[in-house]
């Protein structure tokens, strides 16, 4: 149990996918203008990460590894995740239209999101078992949501700040993103100390 909590907490804070591993930067910069959109995107990512891990872990363990095809990981995972997201979209549209309406626009965006692919591949490289993989995916998703939500707040303040003309728009956003990222570096080592 303690091990799972360590995995979860380190995925959220220390090894934050956006701010520490720099995966999923595209939605991080693209959809973080308003906090409600950022949260919508974050929740969708959590959902897709969990579903993707639930599908790719068995494929890797029971199909690719026994046949010595571990090197096909990337291409197979992309294929499976893309198909899965499409399936989830169809499913939501039919059975939970309300959820589809709020998540719908983000789902196709996530199909080719490197954070999702990164989580599934890292779960394999870290040699997690199925439960650990799921917990780690949940943690990464939560970390993504946290980063998105925090950064949406930062951008809100940026809009009202009087940045130098040449920095306006994307440059100042990137500067702010790097500062938030540096702030997250402060979490490094916190997990070892907490659960030592």
């Amino acid at each position: 149990m303690k091990e799972l909590i360590v995995i979860l907490m380190s995925a959220v804070l220390v090894d934050n996918y956006v701010l520490n591993k720099f995966l999923g930067i595209c939605p991080f910069l693209g959809v973080s203008k308003k906090s409600d959109q950022a949260v919508g995107m974050g929740v969708s990512v959590i959902f897709v990460m969990l579903v993707a891990t639930a599908a790719t872990w068995p494929i890797q363990t029971y199909l690719l590894n026994p046949n010595g095809l571990g090197y096909l990981q990337t291409i197979v995972f992309i294929l499976v995740i893309a198909a899965l997201v499409q399936f989830v979209e169809i499913f939501l549209k039919k059975f939970i239209p309300a959820l589809h309406k709020s998540l719908g626009v983000y789902l196709p965006l996530i199909t080719t999101n490197c954070a999702v692919l990164g989580v599934t591949i890292n779960n394999i490289t870290d040699e997690y078992n199925f439960i650990q993989s799921m917990v780690s995916s949940l943690g990464c998703g939560l970390g993504f949501l946290l980063a998105m939500w925090l950064f949406a707040g930062v951008r809100n303040r940026l809009e009202e700040s009087d940045a130098p003309e040449c920095f306006k728009g994307m440059p100042i956003t990137l500067v702010a993103a790097s500062i938030v990222s540096v702030a997250f570096m402060g979490f490094g080592g916190i997990i070892d100390k907490l659960f030592a």
């Binding site: 494929i59 199909l63 690719l64 046949n67 095809l69 096909l72 291409i75 197979v76 294929l79 499976v80 893309a82 198909a83 899965l84 499409q86 399936f87 169809i90």
Partner: peptide
């Protein structure tokens, strides 16, 4: 294997 997975995915969709 890849063709099989692709086929399975497309069938699912």
């Amino acid at each position: 294997v890849v063709a099989g997975i692709g086929l399975a995915c497309s069938l699912l969709l």
